[in-house]
Design a protein around this nucleic acid. Structure first.
Lengths: 135, 135
DNA sequence: CTTGATCCTCCAGTGACTGGAGGATGTATT
DNA sequence: AATACATCCTCCAGTCACTGGAGGATCAAG
């Protein structure tokens, strides 16, 4: 399998080189194998893991949460009740986020549409989003 | 209208007292009026604004983005094309986030369901989420 | 064998909080 | 009026998750 350098991994995942090294420091990414000269090498599995991390971070999960989420798929046999509990906890967070995002979207659509007309009557971005459930 | 102290505002919005003061420092919240003894006082409008900020932050918007979003509803007459542009830009970000959240949710549901059975066959949390579109 | 890109480590800075010290003020109780 | 306790104030140090840069080694191409 073709090994890639850190720069290529960065390009493929959209995660900066420095950030990848930082993720290794905090053990969110495993210690990378090195070439003789000390350069990190990565595999396709690392591309997947890092893409997952990137998506997860964008969605607001902390690095600790991502570690536990990654743990889920690394020990699929072990401790299944705990895994389900973690999954369900994250599920609740995800659903809360989605409902607020839907409200935010609806209001932004309204603003964009109203503005298109030339001038907007009353822009209630805050008013609408402020009513959204908090968690 | 009944004025409230910073602690009451914190309780009502779920934003910590220190964070409210921090938001004032960075001008995300306006400079609060003060009592004779120097204590900050707030109105219902502040509750709304801060609730909006809280929701927005939870959804991953930066404080700068929230300032521009708040600007939308504070100058509804002025610069309407710019407002629509900002709104549409945020709309794209919101939609990207939603589609990734939906993927995350589907996968977490699957994990939770599989685990319920007692043991999960293969937990593909990473695999599934890693395929999600990046933006 | 030099040039330029990429890699390495280390370290300082940023954004968005979070918590605590040290002290003043407000309210309720004795 | 005196004490107690909550809440407020300012200021400042610490945390998390990066981000960027200095200073130097390595590699691939011309």
């Amino acid at each position: 399998m073709a090994m890639l350098m850190i720069g290529e991994l960065a390009r493929r995942t959209g995660v900066k080189v420095n950030t990848i090294r930082f993720y290794e420091d905090i053990a969110l990414m495993p210690k990378a194998a090195r070439t003789d000269s000390g350069r990190r090498t990565y595999s396709e599995a690392d591309v997947k893991r890092l893409t997952f991390i990137r998506n997860g971070r964008d969605l607001g999960f902390s690095t600790e949460e991502l570690k536990s989420l990654i743990g889920l798929s690394e020990h699929p046999d072990l401790d299944c009740g705990a895994a389900a509990a973690i999954a369900r906890r994250h599920l609740l967070a995800v659903e809360a986020r989605m409902s607020r995002l839907m409200l935010m979207r609806r209001e932004l659509e309204r603003v964009a549409a109203n503005c298109d007309g030339g001038r907007m009557a009353d822009c209630q971005v805050i008013g609408a989003i402020a009513e959204a459930p908090s968690h």
